[in-house]
């Protein structure tokens, strides 16, 4: 259940930014790679629970999952890896490497200002 830890870290960063901006946060965009094992529903649930009574209460979280990238050893093409079709789309080679998965990132926060 590391979504709780992710939610806590998010709340901390967003709260600090909220104080700095002196504004109420209404939503945030998060991105992560497909191999990153976070579940959207659980993160939202955990975040809602710990945000109660803070300026972050009621915030919307938008979560984008970025595809895994493969790089062909034969023709150097970079492509979106699909587990059901593990081949280079350009030269059909099965010799490719998976590039490092995108990390979990807090991309942006939307605030409401007077």
């Amino acid at each position: 259940m590391h979504e709780t830890m992710v939610a806590e870290s998010l709340l901390k960063t967003i709260s600090a930014e909220s104080t700095k901006q002196n504004a109420k946060p209404v939503s945030a965009k998060i991105s992560c790679g497909m191999l990153n094992t976070v579940n959207d529903e659980i993160i939202r649930f955990a975040f809602d629970a710990i945000a109660k009574g803070t300026p972050c209460e009621g915030m919307k979280l938008e979560i984008e999952h970025k595809p895994i990238q493969g790089k062909c050893r034969n023709c150097s093409e970079t492509f979106e890896f699909e587990i059901c079709r593990p081949k280079c789309p350009k030269c059909e080679s099965e010799q490719f490497d998976l590039l490092p998965d995108a990390p979990l990132i807090l991309e942006e926060i939307e605030f409401e200002t007077e």
Binding site: E17, P103, I105, E107, E108
Partner: peptide, 15 residues
């Protein structure tokens, strides 16, 4: 009024 602030911070940076 709404205002969007770019953050671009890794969430698990402490780890």
């Amino acid at each position: 009024m709404k205002k969007i602030v770019d953050i671009g911070k890794k969430i698990l940076i402490a780890n």
